[in-house]
Design a protein around this nucleic acid. Structure first.
Lengths: 119, 119
DNA sequence: TCGGTAACCGAAAAATTATTCGGTATTGAG
DNA sequence: CTCAATACCGAATAATTTTTCGGTTACCGA
């Protein structure tokens, strides 16, 4: 297991929040679940650009953090479903806003020169 | 200059937004500016845990992205001031909410066992 | 028994981000 | 002329996160 070497300020809300849902694919995963993609295999297909491995890992972390819940049936084929917990639902307005902001920003920089503002 | 190797989905609002203000210290910098710490040297003192170098770099990126503006006088000692642009101010409600969420989460996990939920 | 699906996990490697360290420039005071 | 303060920058290194690759388990159907 990975052992962190630099200290973190766990008094800072931003730091805590970023730890819980700030990883590369976590907001996308939460968004996918909200849009109805509940099975790992569905998310793997939905979120292109991410490897299945990293989605599995970040989903697990979200579960450990209490943001998503896992429901597994023992039948065949294996059927696993992740859902947002009550706590997880409290994050969604934030993620929605981040998403909106990003889309607006993209519009905005459409007519700026690449020199002045660039991604 | 660093050349990215993995592709990014610049259609995704979350990805764009995270690129603009999702770096480790950017939300803290914006928060610091909002709280009145406008000079680089003030921010260096205020944001402990971050090295001055990384704050300078991320401040520069925020400037390039049009989130903060820079005002410099040529006197002595050098006096530089960063301020939020109109665009930058549109991010603050999001950062405030992220911060609030993190603080609430910290309260919440106070009475959970470390096994069930951990940072 | 063999092949296929779904859901994982471990470990090494690669990619990315942050840190460390040592510069530069300007100006004023001693 | 030398030193101190402020604001930066470049490059090597370290830290962290993500990817790649190759498993494992469970079960059904041919």
């Amino acid at each position: 297991m990975y052992q962190r070497k630099t200290p973190e300020d766990l008094e800072c809300g931003i730091t805590i929040a970023m730890k819980v849902f700030g990883a590369k694919w976590k907001p996308c995963l939460l968004d996918a679940i909200q849009r109805g993609f509940r099975r790992p295999s569905e998310m793997h297909r939905e979120i292109k650009g991410a490897t299945p491995r990293v989605l599995d890992m970040q989903l697990r972390e979200l579960e450990v953090s209490g943001i998503v819940g896992k429901c597994q049936s023992t039948g065949f084929p294996l059927y696993t479903e992740y859902t947002l917990t009550d706590l997880g639902r409290t994050i969604m307005p934030i993620i929605d806003r981040i998403n909106e902001w990003g889309l607006q920003y993209k519009e905005l920089i459409g007519d700026e020169s690449p020199q002045s503002i660039s991604l």
